[in-house]
Computed example of a mutant assay.
Amino acid sequence: MIGPPSGVRVWLACGRTDMRKGMDGLAMLAQQVLNEDPFGGALFAFRGRRGGLVKLLWYDGQGVCLFSKRLERGHFVWPVTDTGRVSLTPAQLSMLLEGIDWRMPRRVQRPELAG
């Protein structure tokens, strides 16, 4: 996958989204439901009803980009919250798109001694 630029803000739209929506429909959701500027450089992620499809909307400064990924098995780990949106780091987004539970990743233990 083409990675987002470093420092980009990532917003997940909590709940279900109609995956028939295209660029314009998702941009309207970002603006009206998430209260964010869809042309401000942030990346917006939307998940469908069954959880196996995710769409990413991003304005790169020249135009709107729409990326989608469908899992052949399983579903994307998605938060449940009343706020309607959740902020992620680009690293958490990468884990989410790989099918990893981004909420509680296992950290590697720091070595006690060298050698």
Rank of each mutant, 00 (worst) to 15 (best):
V86E: 06
E112A: 14
L93D: 00
V64E: 08
P79S: 02
K55P: 14
R20M: 09
L93E: 00
G22R: 10
E112S: 15
L12M: 02
H75Y: 10
M19F: 04
D24L: 10
M28Y: 13
D101L: 00
G99I: 03
N35Y: 03
S94T: 14
G52M: 01
L88Q: 02
L29C: 10
E36V: 10
R73T: 15
N35T: 14
D82G: 15
R85M: 08
N35A: 15
T81S: 15
R9I: 11
E98G: 12
M28A: 15
K55H: 05
G22W: 04
D18P: 12
T89F: 05
E98V: 09
V8K: 04
M104R: 15
S94W: 05
A13D: 04
E112P: 01
L43K: 07
L71W: 01
M19W: 12
R85L: 13
P90T: 14
R107L: 08
D24Y: 07
F67P: 02
G25K: 12
T81K: 10
H75R: 15
V80E: 06
T89P: 01
M19N: 08
P111W: 02
G74I: 10
G115K: 07
L93H: 00
P5N: 02
T89N: 06
A27D: 06
P4Q: 03
R16P: 01
P79L: 03
M1A: 08
P111F: 02
Q62C: 13
F39M: 07
V80Q: 13
L57C: 03
L96Y: 01
G63P: 07
F76P: 03
P111H: 04
R49M: 11
Q32F: 05
